[in-house]
């Protein structure tokens, strides 16, 4: 019983902390925005594949044999890597800093 109330009290103190509000709002915003960016990039690629496959066969320049689809596809891969980098950077610096501040506050 005491466990339960101790836990409830701690949760209450944390959720009442404005830094916690800032953390939850900021992190969930970043998460969903980046997820949507990834989904948009990927599904625009998939929809081009489905609806306009020929357009990906256009050559990157008149005297080249390489189609635009190749750099496009590779850039989807690279963008996935960059997006993970952005999130890890933000979460592991800004948000983790907030987390440790909150932990200090409720100690």
């Amino acid at each position: 019983m005491s466990t339960d109330s101790a836990e409830k009290e701690l949760v209450k103190r944390i959720t009442a902390n404005p830094k916690y509000q800032e953390l939850v709002a900021g992190r969930s915003c970043t998460q969903w925005v980046l997820s949507v960016v990834m989904l948009v990039i990927y599904f625009s690629f998939i929809l081009v594949v489905a609806f306009a496959p020929k357009s990906l066969g256009t050559k990157i320049s008149p005297d080249s044999i390489i189609s635009v689809g190749i750099p496009f596809g590779v850039s989807v891969i690279v963008s996935a890597f960059i997006l993970t980098g952005i999130y890890v950077y933000k979460a592991n610096s800004k948000y983790d800093e907030l987390v440790s501040q909150i932990k200090e506050d409720v100690k």
Partner: peptide
């Protein structure tokens, strides 16, 4: 040819989503 790339891209783009919404 190009079709192979479509599969590999699909297999990769799940990772950012895992990171944002699930990993931590």
């Amino acid at each position: 040819g190009y079709d192979g790339l479509i599969y590999s891209i699909g297999w990769l783009v799940g990772w950012p989503v895992i990171l944002f919404l699930i990993a931590g």
